[in-house]
Computed example of a mutant assay.
Amino acid sequence: MQAFQTALQVVYPARCTSCGCHVESDFGLCGPCWRDTPFIAGLVCDTCGVPLPGEGGGHAEHCDECLSVARPWSRGRSALVYRENGRKLVLALKHGDRHDVVRPAALWMARVAQPLLTCNTLIAPVPLHWLRMLKRRFNQSALLAQALARETTLPVCPDLLIRPKHTRSLKGMGVEERHAMLDGAIRVHPKRRAELIGRTVLLVDDVMTSGATLSAAAQACFSAGAQDVHILTLARTAKDA
Rank of each mutant, 00 (worst) to 15 (best):
F4W: 15
D183I: 00
C63S: 10
R163E: 04
L161G: 05
T233Y: 00
V90Y: 09
K165M: 04
H62G: 05
A79F: 03
R77Y: 05
A3H: 13
G28S: 13
H62F: 11
R137W: 00
E151C: 08
A224Y: 07
R103S: 04
G49Q: 00
L170V: 06
G76C: 00
H22Q: 06
P158Q: 04
R163W: 03
L134K: 14
A180E: 11
L117M: 06
L91F: 14
P115L: 13
F138T: 08
R87D: 10
L107A: 13
L232E: 01
A235Q: 10
E176S: 15
I231C: 04
V204K: 00
F4V: 15
L89I: 06
D46V: 15
E151R: 15
G31K: 09
P125W: 00
A79P: 03
Q5R: 14
A218W: 00
N85A: 12
V50N: 09
D228V: 07
L80S: 01
Q9V: 14
E61R: 11
G42L: 09
R132E: 10
R168M: 05
V44A: 10
G225R: 08
L29G: 02
L29M: 07
D159W: 07
F27Q: 04
G54L: 11
A235H: 12
A224N: 06
D228E: 15
V69M: 09
K135Y: 12
A212P: 15
R136V: 11
I186M: 03
Q2F: 09
L67I: 04
W130I: 05
L161H: 04
C66L: 13
A149Q: 05
P72L: 07
L134Q: 09
R150K: 12
L29A: 04
W73Y: 02
P38Q: 09
H129S: 02
L93S: 11
L234V: 14
A7K: 07
T37Q: 00
L234W: 07
E151I: 04
G54Y: 13
V175T: 12
L148P: 01
L93E: 09
L148V: 02
E195Y: 05
L160I: 03
K171P: 10
T37W: 00
G198F: 05
V23A: 02
L182T: 02
V188P: 02
V50A: 12
V50L: 13
P127K: 07
D205G: 08
A180C: 06
V201Y: 03
V204R: 00
G49D: 02
I123A: 08
G20F: 10
L182F: 01
C30S: 09
L234D: 08
K135V: 11
R192I: 14
